[in-house]
Design a protein around this nucleic acid. Sequence first.
RNA 1: GCCCAGAUGGCGGAAUUGGCAGACGCGCUAGACUCAAAAUCUGGUUCCUUCGGGAGUGUGGGUUCGACCCCCACUCUGGGUACCA
Length: 858
Amino acid sequence: MATASKDYDFSSIEPKWQAYWADNATFEAKDFEDKPTFYVLDMFPYPSGAGLHIGHPEGYTASDALKRFKKAQGHNVLHPMGWDAFGLPTEQYAIKTGTHPAITTKQNVANFTQQLTQLGFAYDWNREVNTTDPGYFKWTQWIFMQLFKKGLAYVDEKPVWFCPELGTVLANEEVLNTPEGPRSERGSFPVERRPIRQWVLRITEYAERLIAGLKDLDWPDSTKRLQENWIGRSEGAEITFDVSGHAAQLTVFTTRPDTLYGATYMVIAPEHPLVPTITTAEQSDAVAAYVEKAKSKSDLERAELAKEKTGVWTGATAVNPINGREIPIWVADYVLMTYGTGAIMAVPAHDVRDFEFAKEFGLEIIQVIEDGGEAAKDAEGALLEAYTGSGKLVHSGEQSGQDSETAKAAVIQRLAAENRGKATIHFKLRDWLFSRQRYWGEPFPVLWVSESDYAKVDDSLKSVDRPVTCLIEGELRHAIILPEAELPLELPVVESYTPSPDGQSPLSKAGDWLHVYIDPKTGATSAEARDGWIQGIRETNTMPQWAGSCWYYLRYIDPKNSEALIDPEKEKYWGMPDLYIGGAEHAVLHLLYARFWHHVLYDLGVVSDPEPFKKLFHQGIILGEDGEKMSKSRGNVVNPETIIESYGADALRLYLMFLGPLEAMKPWNTKGIEGVARFLRKVWRLVVGEEGGLQANIGEGTLDSETERLLHATIKKVTDDYSTLSFNTAISQMMICVNQLAKVERLPREAVESFVQLLAPLAPHIGEELWLRLGHTGSIAEAGWPKHDESKLVEDTVKIIFQVNGKYRGDAQLAVDVSKDDAIAAAKANERVQAFIQGKSIKKEIYVPGKIVNIVAV
RNA sequence: GCCCAGAUGGCGGAAUUGGCAGACGCGCUAGACUCAAAAUCUGGUUCCUUCGGGAGUGUGGGUUCGACCCCCACUCUGGGUACCA
């Protein structure tokens, strides 16, 4: 095993130790080992054809170092890797070349694996998962089955974003608002609204729990707030207004029932079902034209032209239930059909948008909350802006004089008594659009049967409480779920991976696969007709990429189990990830969807904790050398492989961590890597002599006390810094330490060994090689972790700073326990201090023990 | 517009119960070694200075014996979000 190389030759050392870790299963995580467990999870990558980007090794180096550190400290560490392999690029490559996505995926995974290995990331590959593997997606489908049976999945034909270029629908979250209008997040193609039949998951039923659960999570605050805002819980009231001269009533949602007396008009969304009903004959042309225009400008300009408020009076009026006032009902597109009830009571005095609208159309503005002088007013005392704060009510009948909070409750109570209102909570969060018209995704384990056949089907295959139905080619169909025995439902072989222009999935053309006979009792399927079996059509949509990534962290714990998603004993042994490292770009979607599924699995008793990710860390982004985001078009992309060729994986790992705080956004600087490369050569030379043997000055003996103190301080700091992922400062401390060790005449073997152990998690290849050359067998990862000796850190003298009027004027080494009087006396004895207090009167003398003396002299 | 994060030498960044600002590294620079270069090693490197000192952590105020750190107002940069009633 030992190589005799004299110089630091990373190109021979690194592959050697990578092979060693693989051959010896050094980082295999054994179930039920009697040690404290530590589960460190990386966000698994999409194995694209482009290979690893410099951003991947950043977070992965941190987790790899943490894993090695925790293992050395005696933990049983679980640190797996897998592939989020369903996805668009692979499918688009298939459309272009005809290559089956599974083949492309396999090649890409092989390439990624090789690149990760080259970086020295030693995962437990026995636990590798791949979302496209039938043994994996069987359980993705199984989870869907549970959602279906619980009534959390349904089909809807509401308008959704459709991208003609990609030939698929997109989730709201996959559509970006750009100056050119809404565009697809991937590829930036124009998108439009289209009504298409979709599977939707009722994530909104978990909204309350998803908000509440955030409280105890050790996540970056900004990420928690992002999720909070996304879920958008708001407390308020629903209030029902009578429409004059109609039986119809208009219900609005408001968070400010206290401002009800200030409601001077109402607005309903152009899509509101009551628009045609209440519009008067005189206004019908204008309203129809407005509604038509709102529809045609879709959300594209609607978001774009948000500055100008537009709208039309319907001709109808409503009655304010609190004071009987008659107020006009307008149609305007600043009210959205998709939030609340699609209608609002407008209180222009106390809502910015209503204020703008009222100004635009000359509608009445009545102030009902005192602003305490905060809002800008004109000479006559009329509001120049909306006052949105709280305060005492005025012009509000019997509520006048109450504060906002009291009035809110009082108004709700009053309306509730008349059955005209109630306290409610609304969420911004929408249900999760869960289907895609694509080939390369998990097929839904769903069959569509006729109404009469549905009656024959066993309840175990149904969503009993909330049956799912839809019209397919004009016929009413009922959804039933495949039984577990029929899973996994694999993708059929198709001739073309292209979706049809009408937005149908490529699966809709797989005739043999599409039509099946079903045993209504068991759900067994067959291509042949059988006695008593019914006919069905398979669902042709596939699941979105989020599906597979929603629960992969569970599968690592029990990756090969064909009987269950996860063995409960193993789930209890490992628990949930102790740390989850990944980019902030997933702050909302992935992390919210995964939490939702996890809550459902918790309800099902599959997992023992409602929250999956207790502690979350976002690594920052590495920018190009020009300080801009790395991109091919800018030509500032740094390729990890070329760096490894010239400097080695250890240097790259070290440098990635040395650049700055892990969470920060920081520019790459190729020259800077020279510094850590020099450091590694210095460490090498510390251990290995010019002739290739151990350095002659390594042996028995002790360090001088100053060096010894530094070594122990280094052990302490590095240990602390690793625990908090502060690798940049750990490296800086190790540099200081090695610079000192290089100056020492005789080096005790133990001191050198401790140092190498500290370095090994970040630079594992050189760590192993030096450990070997120091005469050890076995991996340094299993050699334990050095402990600092607190007694070695104790100093008997300490440097005390002398200040006059807060400015540094000198210092002295004084005994650690020097008294205040002695310290101040020492300061006054200092020549420079004397010069500055000469002829002045001393007002104050401050002594901060062990730190500073400050003499205030005027 | 709103929410969040940030601003420290030529550059990346250190420094927290409020106590020497600029650790460590890059770059630059002087020197040693060398015929020379690379590599390596040693020293210097915030700015101004009459060499006594003075100024200095985005800007302006404040609290304090003392502020990169705490408070108020603002500027700029990055990220998220987009009429959510």
